[in-house]
């Protein structure tokens, strides 16, 4: 090999590596940093990372907090506006794109899913988890990321 190609190849491999990391290959989703969002969205369940759903999903969700997956999660209008602003700005297709990676693959642009656990990519990543494991008393369903991903609150979702 011609020696002069070496720096170029090195550069390309560094770029490829960074791309892989930035594309979400490392299972990192920046956790919620806004204290109000953390408090309001993290009382009943973990405050899910905004980069786990597209902006249109967050807008749809914030439009019906009175019936939030069957529960009354309503907040005053000022608080709701602040939460929505944060979620929309850091969503999977806006500011949180670098964390979302391929999370939105297979989600139609006119579809605004409300459940992270129904995204095709999420389903694929969790296909090996059995029904019995989801029912385990320390897990209690798919909403409880922390039960298995002990570092989820810090943004890390490695196995």
């Amino acid at each position: 090999m011609n020696l002069s190609y070496r720096p170029l190849l090195l550069g390309i491999s560094v770029l490829a590596f960074s791309a892989a990391v930035l594309a979400g290959g490392n299972h990192y989703f920046a956790p919620v940093a806004d204290p109000v969002v953390l408090e309001e969205c993290g009382s009943c369940h973990m405050a899910y990372a905004p980069s786990m759903l597209p902006a249109r999903s967050w807008k749809r969700m914030m439009g019906d907090l009175g019936k939030h997956f069957g529960d009354d999660a309503s907040v005053d209008t000022q608080t709701a506006a602040r939460i929505e602003r944060y979620l929309v700005a850091n969503a999977a297709d806006t500011g949180g794109r670098q964390y979302a990676g391929k999370l939105l693959r297979g989600v139609a642009p006119d579809n605004a899913p409300l459940r992270i656990t129904e995204l095709p990519k999420w389903l694929r990543e969790h296909r090996e988890v059995s029904a019995r494991e989801w029912r385990h008393k320390e897990v209690r369903g798919k909403a409880n990321c922390v039960a298995c991903h002990s570092e989820a609150a810090r943004g890390y979702y490695d196995d």
């Binding site: 009382s43 369940h45 209690r140 409880n144 039960a147």
Partner: peptide, 9 residues
């Protein structure tokens, strides 16, 4: 004693 939400928190 502590309680637990239906989503496990």
């Amino acid at each position: 004693a502590a309680g637990r939400t239906r989503s496990g928190k």
